[in-house]
């Protein structure tokens, strides 16, 4: 069903896996943040890849006359990739940036309290 975009999908899944593995395995807080970043990138790539079809153009209306010519627009729209994922990714990237920034802020303040970046040092609350 996803003819032609397997490479992208595989890459994206690989990135997600690497990212989440980093989050799970690496004890360093900074590396965990990087892991999230990588995974986010993977997800974003995946979304774009899912909306991509070979041999189609970008979903951009390059001719103003198309706006009035509904019939042509319908034909042309079959030849473009799905615009929705691209729009989504835009939002997702923004959110990703925000989260990453907040996470880094956390890391800085966590470091200030314990003087360490080891995640296992921050497990006082448990059970």
């Amino acid at each position: 069903m996803m003819a032609g975009n397997e490479l992208y999908v595989a890459t994206a899944l690989g990135l997600i896996f690497i990212g989440l593995a980093t989050v799970t395995i690496k004890r360093n807080l900074i590396k965990m943040v990087i892991g999230f970043s990588v995974a986010d990138t993977g997800v974003n790539l995946l979304i774009v890849a899912l909306g991509w079809f070979p041999n189609r153009t970008a979903p951009i209306i390059d001719d103003p006359s198309l706006l009035s010519d509904r019939a042509t627009l319908a034909v042309r729209s079959a030849a473009i990739v799905d615009p929705v994922p691209q729009a989504l990714v835009l939002t997702a990237i923004v959110i990703g940036v925000g989260v990453t920034a907040l996470m880094l802020a956390y890391v800085i303040r966590l470091y200030a309290t314990e003087g360490s970046l080891d995640v296992s040092r921050f497990g006082r609350m448990k059970w």
């Binding site: 996470m103 303040r109 921050f122 609350m125």
Partner: peptide, 11 residues
């Protein structure tokens, strides 16, 4: 305590 909890929650 808020930092620790918040961080875990965030992860």
């Amino acid at each position: 305590s808020g930092l620790e909890a918040g961080f875990k929650y965030m992860v």
